[in-house]
Simulated scan of single mutants.
Amino acid sequence: MTRPLHPSALVTGGNRGLGRAIAAGLKAKGCRVTIGARSEEDGRQAAAELGMAFVRLDLTEPDSYFDAVMQARGFDILVNNAGILNHGSLLSPKSDFAEAMEVMVAAPLDLIRLNVPHWRETGWGRIVNLSSGWGSFTQGLGGPGAYGVAKAALNALTKALPRDLPPGVKINACDPGWARTRMGGASAPLSPEEGADTALWLALLPEDGPTGGFFRRREPVGW
């Protein structure tokens, strides 16, 4: 089925950084965008500034995103952007492993599951998983804490899920590069808008576009 004229889109962590740039880019391309954020105050302020809808999403609280998707009756485009980055050792009792896996693997999979009925009905959908070079085995699974491990697991979902998704739905992961966000820091070489480019491309892929891939600067990269 062809793409809707004005696809609906949900961008998690859309109130700042890459998520905000992706949300703004999707709106500029004619999408009806909803941003999700854990902070209601920050999310509503960003949504008002961008002229789009807001839902409170705490990816450690399944009820919050279940309600958001059910009330919207599903989204055409799902951008799993929200993430956490901590610096404790994986072996520490204070490791962020459980939270990282919840936010960057379990919740994205739940959001995909919740949207499946909508995609079955419409016959069109796009899923973009914001990953990282730190989640790549070929690049050594870098980064602090559980970040790289969680991103690698998100990549694995991206690779495996095409076999289970309804026809007309594409899923891909992207490495946005090192961008100037709160997570990336002020010395990063890329603007949020530059970092958002590949995600925007994947969110609006044509019918003959790829699925189950991992991309940087719109080019395939090693898992």
Results as ranks from 00 to 15, higher is better:
residue 93 P to C: 08
residue 107 A to E: 03
residue 97 F to Y: 12
residue 79 V to Y: 05
residue 102 E to H: 12
residue 100 A to Q: 09
residue 81 N to M: 11
residue 92 S to N: 12
residue 90 L to C: 07
residue 106 A to P: 03
residue 91 L to A: 15
residue 90 L to I: 14
residue 107 A to F: 02
residue 97 F to D: 01
residue 81 N to V: 11
residue 112 I to N: 02
residue 107 A to W: 03
residue 88 G to W: 06
residue 99 E to T: 15
residue 89 S to V: 03
residue 99 E to L: 11
residue 94 K to L: 13
residue 108 P to D: 03
residue 86 N to S: 13
residue 87 H to P: 04
residue 79 V to I: 13
residue 103 V to P: 02
residue 90 L to D: 03
residue 93 P to G: 08
residue 82 A to R: 00
residue 91 L to M: 15
residue 97 F to C: 09
residue 87 H to W: 13
residue 88 G to F: 13
residue 104 M to A: 10
residue 82 A to V: 06
residue 98 A to G: 08
residue 112 I to Q: 00
residue 100 A to P: 07
residue 103 V to D: 06
residue 84 I to Q: 00
residue 107 A to Y: 03
residue 101 M to S: 01
residue 94 K to G: 10
residue 110 D to R: 12
residue 106 A to Q: 10
residue 88 G to S: 14
residue 103 V to L: 08
residue 97 F to V: 07
residue 108 P to T: 05
residue 77 I to Q: 01
residue 77 I to Y: 01
residue 107 A to R: 04
residue 109 L to R: 11
residue 78 L to S: 01
residue 106 A to I: 15
residue 106 A to S: 14
residue 85 L to P: 07
residue 101 M to P: 02
residue 83 G to E: 00
residue 112 I to Y: 04
residue 89 S to W: 05
residue 102 E to M: 13
residue 90 L to A: 08
residue 96 D to Q: 12
residue 82 A to C: 08
residue 88 G to Y: 09
residue 103 V to T: 12
residue 91 L to G: 15
residue 82 A to D: 00
residue 78 L to M: 09
residue 110 D to Q: 10
residue 103 V to S: 10
residue 84 I to M: 11
residue 96 D to V: 07
residue 101 M to D: 01
residue 95 S to E: 00
residue 87 H to A: 14
residue 107 A to M: 02
residue 97 F to E: 01
residue 78 L to F: 10
residue 89 S to D: 15
residue 99 E to D: 12
residue 108 P to E: 03
residue 79 V to P: 04
residue 90 L to G: 05
residue 82 A to Y: 08
residue 109 L to S: 07
residue 79 V to R: 00
residue 80 N to T: 06
residue 83 G to H: 03
residue 86 N to D: 14
residue 88 G to Q: 15
residue 88 G to P: 02
residue 111 L to M: 09
residue 102 E to R: 14
residue 92 S to T: 06
residue 78 L to D: 04
residue 97 F to G: 01
residue 98 A to Q: 11
residue 91 L to D: 15
residue 89 S to K: 09
residue 80 N to D: 10
residue 98 A to D: 13
residue 111 L to T: 06
residue 102 E to P: 00
residue 106 A to N: 13
residue 92 S to F: 04
residue 89 S to G: 09
residue 112 I to S: 02
residue 79 V to F: 08
residue 107 A to P: 00
residue 101 M to R: 08
residue 80 N to P: 05
residue 101 M to V: 14
residue 101 M to E: 06
residue 94 K to N: 12
residue 106 A to E: 10
residue 79 V to E: 07
residue 102 E to I: 08
residue 94 K to F: 05
residue 112 I to V: 14
residue 87 H to D: 13
residue 85 L to C: 12
residue 80 N to G: 08
residue 104 M to I: 11
residue 79 V to S: 02
residue 108 P to G: 02
residue 83 G to M: 00
residue 91 L to E: 15
residue 86 N to R: 12
residue 100 A to W: 04
residue 93 P to T: 07
residue 96 D to P: 09
residue 91 L to K: 11
residue 97 F to Q: 06
residue 112 I to E: 01
residue 88 G to H: 14
residue 109 L to N: 11
residue 94 K to P: 00
residue 110 D to H: 14
residue 84 I to H: 03
residue 86 N to I: 03
residue 100 A to S: 14
residue 112 I to W: 04
residue 90 L to P: 05
residue 96 D to A: 07
residue 104 M to W: 05
residue 107 A to I: 05
residue 96 D to E: 08
residue 79 V to T: 09
residue 100 A to V: 07
